[in-house]
Nucleic acid binder design. Structure first.
Lengths: 133, 133
DNA sequence: CAGTATCCTTCGCGATACTG
DNA sequence: CAGTATCGCGAAGGATACTG
């Protein structure tokens, strides 16, 4: 019943905390993979290039803890575990896509700005040490 | 002229890279502060509670490098430096607010899920060591 | 297959001191 | 006021080995 439309300082920390979830190295990529439906552990591992077994486990635990994914164990041999986005997870995915689209849309602008910035830094160095060239 | 609506693998890394900007500890908070207009260095420092001088400098440099803020130096004594969002920076702020709103909206759901998860973990421990209680 | 446990490295970040 | 330079810690994350 707390008025969520009123911004109190507490919200800032909460938002930052949740943003750090999104900002961590793997969560978003894992969530995106599950967007297409339930996935098994090694299926995710192959889909998310570069992730280690350890980090996939930790990432999935974190997402499960926050109620973003469900973990379903089928006690077969060999064992089978399915991970699936919850409603909350789906809604996060949608929101995150907004950011993803922004990134793709402005990718070139950013890369260009970066090159300009780096280049202008080099110029300053050249002015300090004209004999460097 | 590259078809930005077609997803090639390269985009994933770019998106991740830009998401990590958003996910870092201070960038978003600094950007939000500048949303209300140009700000001076120490003004930002006071507004963003907990940030160190070093991190504010690094954060601002990063944002400037990516073309998200401009840095204007007034060669007065004492020196005065204004930081201001660019158009690109403003558009990022808008997008990030989407995520912020999501976080505020689902804050309680997440916290509840967390408590449930942590509690169920304790139960399992109790079952393994019934004498622990 | 789906993990857990352990070790080890890298790096983000804070604290502190100094400068134009 | 607005930085830069240096040091050190703790957490994040990778590699590897082992298990039900």
């Amino acid at each position: 019943m707390s008025p969520s439309h009123i911004h109190v300082p507490t919200d800032c920390r909460t938002v930052t905390e949740i943003l750090s979830r999104v900002g961590d190295k793997w969560s978003v990529q894992v969530v995106v993979q599950m967007g297409e439906g339930p996935k098994r552990f090694n299926e995710l591992r192959r889909a998310v290039t570069g992730i280690s077994q350890r980090m996939l486990t930790l990432t999935l635990r974190g997402l499960e803890r926050d109620g973003l994914v469900t973990r379903t164990v089928y006690p077969t041999i060999p064992p089978r575990v399915d991970y699936q986005l919850t409603g909350l997870g789906c809604s996060l995915l949608k929101t995150v896509r907004g950011l993803g689209d922004w990134a793709i849309e402005h990718r070139d602008e950013i890369l260009t700005a970066r090159r300009r910035f780096d280049a202008s830094g080099d110029e300053e160095l050249d002015r300090e040490r004209p004999d460097a060239a």
